[in-house]
Structures are given as C-alpha cells and as structure tokens.
Design a protein around this nucleic acid. Structure first.
Lengths: 130, 130, 130, 130
DNA sequence: GTGGTCTAGACCACG
DNA sequence: GTGGTCTAGACCACA
C-alpha cells in the first residue's frame, strides 16, 4: 500500500486492476475533486512512469484514455495539461456517477436487497467510520 | 437478450463480463432471493453447460466458486445441492452487500460526491424508472 | 504496394500513417462497404498480425479502437466479431462522412476555391478515370 | 480561439495539428486568396515567432516548406518575400486542390459512398450552414 | 486457442 | 525535452 505523491496528485497502485486503469481513475479523481487546477500541467509520461515505477507505455495508455475523454490535453513537445473546461469535468463526473449508481442498484437487486435496506446499511457504515 | 430457464433458475448471459462470473452471480442471486429452495438439487455441470451452450469448464469454474463460499455442496454420486444453512446464505449475502456498498462509496468519494448527493440522486433515479 | 487478403478483407499498409490507424480504416471500410457480413468472425489478433507482418500489439490496438466504436465485439477466449447492429454501422459511416466533408470544404475554402469550382473539378476527374 | 494579425495575414493556431503545418497552411491560404500581394515582404522568422508566441524553429520549418514550394523566397540581407509568379501560385493551388479532392474521394470510396451521395450531402450541409 | 496487460527499449515528430 | 508509434516477448484470464 505504498502511496506516491507527484505534483498535487497522490497515486496508489496494486495488482487487482490494470495499472493503466488505476492511473486513469486516480487522475480523474484528482480532477473531479479539484485537487489539481484546470489548465495545470501534469507530470510528463516519463516522469510519472519513473515515479510510479511502471513502464512509460502504461502511463501513456492512461493519458490517451483521459485525452479521449477530453479531461486532459496532450501537446506533443510540450507536455500534458488538465482541460480548461469545467463543463467537461462536470459532465464526465455526472456520467460516471450515474453509471456507478445504476450498477450498484442492480447488484443490490440481484442480492434481493431493497433500497430501504441499502440506505439503512449505508447510514450504519457511515456512523461506524466516525 | 436470450433468457434461459433451468430448474427454477433463469439465466441471461452476455459477453461484457466473464461467463463464469455471470453464472456465479445468477445462481447466488437465485439463492439470495429465495427463488430456489435450500437443499434443492441444481443441474449437473454438464446439464447446465449444455443448457447455456457454454463450455463445461466455464460452469465448473462457477460451481467451484460457489462451493468455496459453501453456497452449494457436491455429494459424490448424487449431484450438486444448494446449502441447507440459512445462516450461511445470510452471511454471504451480507458480506457481498457490504463489499458492494464499500466499493460504491469509495467510488463516489473518488469522484468527490457526498453521501447526501448520492442519496438524493438515488431517489431521483428511482422515480425516473417508474 | 503489397496487398494482403485475409478472410474477405484486403489490407494494404504503407508507412505514411500509423499502422494501427490503417488497419482500423481498412476494417471499417470493409464493414461499411458490406464486404464482410455483420456478426462474422474476423481474424484473431495473432493471425492478422502474422498475415500483415506486424506486431500483435499493433493489431490489438486497432481492434480496441474498433471495439470502442462498437463496430466489432471482442470475446476473450473466442475471438473477434463484427457487430450485428446495422444501425451502429450506419451511424459510424454517417459521422465519418460528415466529418470528412466538413474538413474537405474547409480546406477548399482556405485555398480560395468555391464549391462550384470543386464540383467542376470533381466531374472532370471522374471523367478522366473512365 | 485567439486570432493574431501580422502584416496582412491573420493567424489562428490550435494544438490539434502541428503548429508549423498550420502556419504553412495559413500563409498559403493568404496567398491563394490574394489577401497578401505577390512580391510583398513577409515577417522575418523571429518577428513572426514572437508575434505568434511560438518557437522560432517552428516558424523556420514552416518557411522552409513554403520555400520548397517556391511560394516564398528568401533574399540574403533583405528578408523573405512572397513569390512574384502568379503562375507558381496557381500551380500550387491547383495541385493542393487536386490532392485534397483525390484524398477526399478515396475516403468516400472507402466508406462506400457514391459521388452522387457526396454531392447531395454537400449541398445539404451548405444550406444547413446558412 | 483467444484477447488483455505489461515491460524493455527503439525510433520518430515536434518545439 | 515532450508525446506517439512500433517491436519483441513475457505472463495472465478465459473458453
């Protein structure tokens, strides 16, 4: 459970999921939570690869996926930057959230758990956390 | 969207997830929802594989996983049966639910969405479905 | 200008563009023109890589892009198949065409060429081809 | 969408294409459309680089390409000038147009779209723009 | 056998 | 220096 900090982002990789996917999620998370400002430069492919001790190709793949979602812009010869469009960020955030909620409710349904039960348990767990 | 009925269980497979995982989930769901009675016999690996038109290895793997969770038991020469322990079922159900809820809350957190927002959206989406 | 035939598709690669992009275009073209039937299996990653004498990763990358556009479906352990949705094909075809037309008209405009001139030249070239 | 005016030419750069290519296209466009007179002096590499806020190497590369096409000529100690040959301009313009048309028709063909369809769509899109 | 992920390291295009 | 493409070859998950 090593945590690695690069710029304002923190990364934590394990082997339960594809590495590039974890990188995508963690960059996306940093953007969604506003931990990194819009328009800001993020580490170069090689820099991040070195920091995370993964192959540059793995970081590149993650960056390309974020680029396709227009959450970052890559400029050959210059580096990689967070999008400047707050709108874009909101849209991606909302889509991901709705999808996650749908999948979650479907799973709960498949376990024969009503949404009342779910809410009860959620509250229970929240109070445990404190 | 083909739906296949075997004994009292209904199966619906697509290719977005591993087949064996879908089989595990759907058997588990049938147990959790009480669609299939405790102690009841379920189809043999070969039977189910034939009915679902999948490779027997795939069904075997699914049954192994269910067996590991002690939701089913194989009795030499007699076939495969749902567990008779209601307790066991409840325990598995609760664990799966807790895990799903934890993962879900973690995802929401990574998107910077508060649990109040989640609850509000869940209700919104439920009403949309009607 | 070697032309390589695999299944019902013909491939022709040069070095003016990324190889994976050329593969994407040529598979897409085969689908759009109906040279390959919906639902049909296409060569495996390794098979096509061998036939085209490129690295499997390159073919894989092409297939993943086509998969993202839902023009093909990949099924781990089984192979890769053309989508069965005629609708999807039409939609992709139309989008690509519209984009190409837009870019083309913009380029013509930047050369100070009116669309009348363009049409005249297009006809001229068509008659030359005969 | 910043637009920068230098001499009689206007430049508008984004990062979707190589910068040097955009500069080539926009100078060429200014010549083709007669926005800048034949024989006229254009900014020095340094001047233009400063105005556009790009690396001088980038402008240099663009000028080299224009020079190769003999659309501009560099006179030692005097600066860089648009060609005085109207013929040359026409020839380049026609070549670029033919090439663009060819590429366009090839693309349409690869999508299985007939030239009748193309013409019809072009008109449709033109009328949409108004 | 299939597709999917990852590494190591080369070479190119761009600024 | 940056990102982008490609190769060679390993190892994993799935059917």
């Amino acid at each position: 459970m090593k945590e690695i900090n690069v710029n304002n982002m923190s990364f934590q990789l394990d082997l339960s999921q594809p590495l590039y996917e974890q990188i995508v999620n963690q960059v996306r998370s940093a953007i969604a939570k506003g931990e990194i400002a819009l328009g800001e430069k993020i580490p170069s492919v090689r820099e991040l690869a070195h920091a995370l001790q993964v192959n540059p190709n793995t970081v590149m793949r993650a960056y390309q996926e974020l680029d396709r979602d227009q959450l970052i812009e890559t400029r050959r010869g210059q580096g990689t930057f967070i999008t400047t469009s707050q709108e874009r960020v909101e849209s991606v955030r909302k889509n991901l959230a709705k999808q996650a909620i749908n999948e979650f409710l479907a799973k709960m349904k498949s376990l024969g758990i009503s949404s009342e039960e779910v809410k009860a348990w959620m509250m229970e767990m929240e109070s445990e956390e404190r």
